[in-house]
Computed example of a mutant assay.
Amino acid sequence: MVLVLKKGASKKDIEAIESVLYKEPVTGGFNAKKYNGKLALKENPLAIQNKLRNEWERDIS
Results as ranks from 00 to 15, higher is better:
Met1Tyr: 05
Met1Phe: 04
Val2Met: 07
Val2Tyr: 04
Val2Ala: 03
Val2Leu: 08
Val4Ala: 06
Val4Cys: 06
Lys6His: 07
Lys7Trp: 08
Gly8Glu: 05
Gly8Thr: 00
Ala9Leu: 01
Ala9Gln: 00
Ala9Glu: 02
Ser10Phe: 05
Ser10Lys: 12
Ser10Cys: 10
Ser10Thr: 15
Ser10Val: 03
Lys11Ile: 08
Lys11Cys: 05
Lys12His: 15
Lys12Leu: 14
Lys12Ser: 15
Lys12Arg: 15
Asp13His: 00
Asp13Leu: 04
Asp13Gly: 06
Ile14Trp: 05
Ile14Asp: 09
Ile14Glu: 11
Glu15Pro: 02
Glu15Cys: 10
Ile17Trp: 01
Ile17Met: 03
Ile17Gln: 00
Ile17Cys: 03
Glu18Gly: 01
Ser19Tyr: 01
Ser19Met: 04
Ser19Cys: 00
Ser19Ile: 03
Ser19Arg: 07
Val20Tyr: 02
Val20Asn: 06
Val20Gly: 02
Val20Met: 06
Leu21Gly: 02
Tyr22Asn: 03
Tyr22Arg: 00
Lys23Asn: 03
Glu24Val: 00
Glu24Arg: 03
Val26Asp: 05
Thr27Pro: 00
Gly28Asn: 07
Gly28Gln: 08
Gly28His: 00
Gly29Asn: 02
Gly29Met: 02
Phe30Lys: 03
Phe30Tyr: 13
Asn31Cys: 07
Asn31Gln: 12
Asn31Met: 13
Asn31Gly: 09
Ala32Cys: 02
Lys33Met: 02
Lys34Val: 03
Lys34Ile: 07
Tyr35Val: 10
Tyr35His: 14
Asn36Leu: 12
Asn36Arg: 11
Lys38Phe: 06
Lys38Asn: 10
Leu39Arg: 06
Ala40Met: 12
Ala40Leu: 12
Ala40Pro: 00
Ala40Ile: 08
Ala40Glu: 14
Ala40Phe: 08
Leu41Thr: 06
Leu41Ser: 01
Lys42Thr: 14
Glu43Leu: 07
Glu43Tyr: 08
Asn44His: 07
Asn44Met: 03
Pro45Asp: 05
Leu46Thr: 10
Leu46Ala: 14
Leu46His: 07
Leu46Cys: 06
Leu46Asp: 08
Leu46Phe: 11
Ala47Lys: 15
Ile48Arg: 08
Ile48Asp: 01
Gln49Trp: 11
Gln49Asp: 10
Gln49Met: 15
Asn50Cys: 09
Asn50His: 10
Asn50Leu: 15
Lys51Met: 12
Lys51Gln: 14
Leu52Gln: 15
Leu52Tyr: 12
Arg53Tyr: 09
Arg53Gln: 14
Arg53Phe: 13
Asn54Lys: 13
Asn54Phe: 05
Asn54Ile: 02
Glu55Gly: 08
Glu55Thr: 06
Glu55Phe: 11
Trp56Arg: 14
Trp56Ser: 14
Trp56Gln: 13
Trp56Asn: 11
Glu57Trp: 04
Glu57Thr: 12
Arg58Val: 05
Asp59Ser: 13
Ile60Asp: 12
Ser61Gly: 03
Ser61Cys: 11
